[in-house]
């Protein structure tokens, strides 16, 4: 799997290791957050769906009652008021306003019905006959429309949530976070670690070589000095003049050694 995912094109440095580590952490938190969001939304979504189903059934009943109250009107008026009603309509008395509800960062509109006071286009309809039935019919229908508005809110929430959940789920599930970014970053971290280890090992080996060489050099120098001393002793025995100079060189050699071992 790791081969397929590949890794980020970075230089294997300690800095980029730090960078990658924070990126991994971010990706993991992000992923779990998204997952939680999607779960919350889905929960809400299921609830709404259930309520839509209920509300739609309820609507059937409510509308039937309303239609029946209209039948009562035509019984009382003894005629057709449809045309007159259509023509007298001017200003909507029954309106809706939308407010927002925040579900896990998604704004769902919620319709709220209200009636505009003072607007009544049909106050005098049925004045001579059937006015009381018309009044009752209006109330029945107003209640029915309230149910409809409620249902409309649910339905809009349903459509919006449906859309949002699709997007969120795509982000959660479409191998972007879970299957691409996180493994890729993990891979990169592994790669950087291994590269860094490799570098460490190389360095160690190099240093070992260096110190080995130094030791060989020292040994050679020691031997030389020893030889020189012997020679000097022999010369001293013979003449005995130069002894101090090689002593100083030896001190320098010592310092170099220290440096290497650090």
């Amino acid at each position: 799997m790791s081969g397929a995912v590949g890794r980020e094109p970075v230089f294997p440095t300690r800095q980029s290791l730090g960078l990658m580590k924070s990126k991994l952490k971010g990706a993991e938190t992000g992923h779990s957050l998204l997952k939680r969001k999607s779960e919350a939304l889905t929960k809400r979504f299921r609830e709404i769906t259930r309520r839509i189903d209920e509300a739609k059934r309820k609507m059937g009943r409510v509308m039937q009652i309303a239609a029946f109250s209209l039948a009562e009107v035509s019984y009382a008026v003894g005629g057709d008021i449809g045309y007159q009603v259509q023509e007298s309509a001017k200003q909507a008395r029954f309106r809706v306003r939308a407010k927002q509800e925040n579900v896990s960062g998604v704004f769902l509109p919620q319709f709220e019905s209200y009636t505009q006071d003072g607007v009544n286009d049909f106050a005098l309809t049925g004045l001579g006959k059937g006015g009381q039935q018309i009044q009752r019919c209006r109330e029945t229908y107003a209640r029915a429309v309230e149910t409809l508005v409620e249902l409309a809110s649910l339905q809009t929430a349903f459509l919006i949530l449906d859309e949002v959940i699709k997007v969120v789920n795509r982000r959660v599930l479409t191998k972007s976070s879970e299957h691409v970014i996180i493994p890729r970053t993990e891979n990169t971290i592994k790669y950087i670690n291994s590269e860094l280890d490799e570098l460490d090992r190389e360095e160690f080996y190099r240093l070992k070589k260096v110190s080995g060489k130094k030791q060989r050099d020292n040994a050679a120098a020691d031997a030389e000095i020893l030889a020189a001393r012997k020679k000097a002793e022999a010369e001293e025995a013979a003449g005995g003049v130069v002894a101090a100079e090689p002593e100083t060189a030896d001190i320098l050699g010592e310092q170099e050694d220290n440096d290497v071992i650090f």
């Binding site: 309303a66 239609a67 109250s69 209209l70 008021i81 449809g82 009603v85 259509q86 309509a89 001017k90 200003q91 909507a92 008395r93 029954f94 309106r95 809706v96 306003r97 939308a98 509109p109 009636t115 505009q116 607007v119 009544n120 286009d121 049909f122 018309i134 019919c137 209006r138 229908y141 107003a142 029915a144 429309v145 409809l148 508005v149």
Partner: peptide, 28 residues
């Protein structure tokens, strides 16, 4: 997108429209 949306609209048969208009949704 929706703060200006205040009205309901209806496409229906005569009885449905009459009833809904009686409820006061009609607007011209």
């Amino acid at each position: 997108t929706y703060k200006d949306r205040q009205l309901l609209a209806v496409i229906g048969d005569e009885d449905s429209v009459t009833g809904l208009l009686l409820a006061g949704i009609g607007h011209v």
